[in-house]
Every structure is written in structure tokens, then in C-alpha cells.
Simulated assay, not measured.
Amino acid sequence: MTLDPSADILSKALKKLEHKISIHTAMKSGFSSLYGYTNDEGGIRHALLEDAAKVDEADALFMLGACAAFVSYVLNKARSTGLI
């Protein structure tokens, strides 16, 4: 697995948000794990580049919904705490 420098951006953003609100440890871990799946060499974003990746339409649709929900969650929390 190649470490993506943008993964650090997610952890920094979550830490900044955590200074304002409480994020359950399991939820934070879930966000990081889903993000890891998107960026991993065998993950959803690299599925067309890797022959070994077993990603189908159901996986893509799930990730689309999960990512949309995550963005909505972060934006709403950031707005409600005055971060944006």
C-alpha cells in the first residue's frame, strides 16, 4: 500500500473538528478506514488500474453514497461549530 500524503489531510481535518465536537472513536476509525479503501492501490479509486482489484458497480455505488454522507456530515458539523 502506498501512503497518500492527502491521508494526512483527513486526519488533520478530523483533529481540528474534534477540538470543537466529540467524534466517537469507532466513527473516526471508520472514516479513516473508508478513506484508506478509496486510496489503497487495490481500492475503489484504483480499480481500473489494478487487474487484481475486485470492485464492481455495487462497491462504487456504496462509496459514492458513503463519501457524499461524509462530506455532508463534516460540512454540517463545521458550520455548526463555526469552523466555516
Rank of each mutant, 00 (worst) to 15 (best):
L14R: 00
D4P: 02
G30T: 13
K15P: 03
L64A: 13
E18K: 14
N76M: 13
E41H: 08
V74A: 08
F31N: 05
R45Q: 07
G82A: 01
I9L: 11
K54V: 09
Y73A: 10
Y37A: 09
I9P: 01
M1G: 07
Y35P: 05
K54M: 10
A68E: 05
E50P: 00
T81V: 12
G42H: 00
D8Y: 14
I21K: 00
L17Y: 06
A26N: 12
V71I: 14
S33F: 14
S11N: 12
L3Q: 15
A58H: 00
G30A: 11
S72F: 13
S80C: 10
S72P: 02
F31K: 01
I21L: 03
E50G: 03
H19E: 14
A69K: 07
N76F: 12
L48N: 06
K28T: 01
A47L: 08
L61V: 05
L48V: 12
A78K: 06
E57Q: 05
T2M: 02
T2K: 05
F70M: 15
L49S: 08
D56E: 11
N76W: 08
A52G: 12
A52D: 13
K77M: 14
A52Y: 09
V71C: 04
T38L: 14
M27Y: 15
H24G: 08
K20F: 08
K15F: 07
D40M: 11
D40W: 05
D59H: 04
D4N: 06
E18L: 02
Y35H: 13
A78R: 07
A78N: 07
L61N: 01
A26H: 13
G30N: 10
E18S: 12
S6M: 11
S22R: 13
D56S: 09
S6F: 07
E57K: 03
I84F: 10
M27S: 11
T38R: 08
E57T: 01
I9F: 09
S22V: 15
A69D: 04
K15G: 09
R45G: 00
L34D: 10
D8H: 14
C67V: 14
I23M: 09
L17D: 08
L64D: 04
A7E: 11
I23G: 01
K20C: 06
Y37S: 04
A7H: 08
D8T: 14
H24F: 12
V74W: 05
D4A: 06
I84N: 05
V55W: 01
R45I: 00
L48E: 12
R45S: 11
L17W: 02
I84G: 13
L17Q: 06
L61G: 06
K16W: 10
R45L: 12
A69T: 02
S6R: 13
A69I: 04
